[in-house]
């Protein structure tokens, strides 16, 4: 199985949004300001298609964090932003009034932490709902074109698939769009599909 059907995708989207909600709650709590997070769209595609789709958004170079995960399904997860957006986001989060040119070392780290919180929450919610055991790696900071970042992130062979989510960040009245990307190999996709199916059975949702 190299694809998820529509029903599976819907269930997955719901699970991911539960994770986003949890992440938003812990970020709001941590930062003492209201943070909203949602992933209105989720798409499943090959890595090449993902690069094309992301390039079409015209976002230019991106930066963000990448962290591996391992368990019933394994791969690489990423939270990416257009570079100028990432500057804006970090400064909103850090309440920094005097921006310097580019991200400083400490700002890169802060962004890594934000990505870490979101990706952990999202993966955590998948693990919980689909009764999986999945652990995560430490985040690492990435910067470059979509292609650079995507290719560097996965030594999972050419036929790995990409789960692409657009995420909307709402911080203090500002809206910032970013992307969450999961890169999965074929074995992991069927692991994920099995988990989704198990969850649907538990809820009594019929498989199509």
């Amino acid at each position: 199985m190299t694809k998820l059907n529509d029903l599976q995708l819907d269930v997955l989207a719901e699970a991911l949004n539960i994770g986003m909600g949890a992440a938003a709650a812990s970020l709001s709590d941590m930062l003492g300001s209201s943070v909203g997070l949602s992933a209105p769209r989720i798409e499943f595609m090959t890595r090449g298609e993902a690069v094309l789709a992301l390039n079409r958004t015209g976002a230019g170079p991106v930066c963000g964090v990448s962290q591996g995960f391992e368990g019933n399904f394994s791969g690489e997860s990423m939270l990416l932003f257009p570079i100028d957006k990432s500057l804006e986001l970090v400064r909103l989060l850090m309440k920094e009034t005097l921006p310097l040119e580019g991200l400083t070392e400490l700002e890169e780290e802060a962004l890594s932490e934000v990505g870490n919180i979101i990706l952990n929450a999202v993966i955590g919610s998948l693990a919980e709902l689909f009764a999986h055991d999945i652990g995560t790696d430490l985040p690492s900071f990435k910067q470059g074109s979509f292609e650079d970042v995507l290719v560097a992130a996965c030594d999972h062979g050419k036929d790995s698939m990409v789960l692409l989510l657009r995420v909307d960040f709402n911080v203090e009245q500002s809206e910032i769009d970013g992307y969450v990307v999961f890169v999965l190999d074929l074995a992991s996709i069927s692991g994920l599909a099995n988990g989704i199916d198990g969850y649907m059975r538990k809820l009594g949702i019929a498989e199509v």
Partner: peptide, 18 residues
């Protein structure tokens, strides 16, 4: 706790650390 229970790694940056 998140690490011990779920196996998640975390980074706590200086900027956001309370």
């Amino acid at each position: 706790d998140d690490c011990l229970v779920r196996g998640n790694a975390s980074l706590l940056s200086h900027a956001l650390m309370r």
